[in-house]
Computed example of a mutant assay.
Amino acid sequence: MSKTKLTINRNGSIKIEGDFEITDSQGNVFGLGGRTALGLCRCGESKNKPFCDGSHRNNFEHECEAFDLPPMKTN
């Protein structure tokens, strides 16, 4: 099984690559047609949510830079 990788694209989608499945809130699996890479909408404008259809072009700006989260809280 390959490692799953998510890339937060500049001014665009979240690219997911590797071995993954995507489910809705009820646990139903999306049919991905054998894809091992695709884009997930991050702007909210896609007509094909949760998948990116390119609607973000010229309407969405966000450049994400990696950072470290604080340690998880343990009680």
Rank of each mutant, 00 (worst) to 15 (best):
L69K: 11
Q26H: 08
L32E: 04
D19Y: 02
G33Y: 02
C64F: 15
L32R: 08
I22S: 03
K73W: 11
F30R: 07
T23C: 09
S25I: 13
T4C: 04
K47N: 13
N28M: 02
T36Y: 07
M72K: 08
T7Y: 10
I22G: 06
I16Y: 01
C64T: 13
P70G: 13
N28K: 15
N75V: 07
L69C: 10
K49F: 05
T74E: 13
K73V: 13
A66F: 13
I14T: 06
R10H: 09
E17C: 03
M72H: 06
G44F: 00
S46K: 11
N11M: 01
S2R: 11
A37S: 15
F30I: 00
N59W: 08
K3S: 12
C43E: 03
E45L: 10
K5W: 03
R57M: 12
F51L: 04
N11L: 00
F67P: 09
L69T: 14
L38F: 11
R42I: 04
F67K: 14
C43Q: 03
D19Q: 05
G12W: 07
S2P: 12
E61S: 13
T74A: 06
G33P: 04
N58D: 15
F60E: 00
E63M: 05
G18R: 10
L38E: 05
E21H: 07
G27N: 07
G44N: 01
F60L: 00
I16L: 04
D68Y: 12
N11F: 02
T74H: 15
K3W: 06
G54K: 09
K73P: 11
I16W: 01
Q26Y: 05
N58Q: 12
K47F: 03
K3V: 14
R35Y: 05
G54L: 02
K3M: 14
S55M: 03
D53M: 03
E65A: 14
E63R: 10
I22E: 06
L69M: 12
K47H: 09
N59K: 15
I14D: 00
S13D: 11
T36V: 08
F20T: 09
G33A: 04
G54D: 14
K47I: 04
K49D: 00
L32M: 01
D53Y: 10
D68N: 15
L32N: 06
I16G: 04
D68V: 07
G44L: 01
T74G: 07
G39H: 12
R10F: 04
K49V: 06
K49I: 06
F20D: 02
T36G: 05
G27Y: 08
C41G: 04
K49T: 06
T23W: 03
D24L: 00
S55W: 02
F60S: 01
S46P: 06
H56K: 06
C43V: 03
I14H: 01
T36E: 03
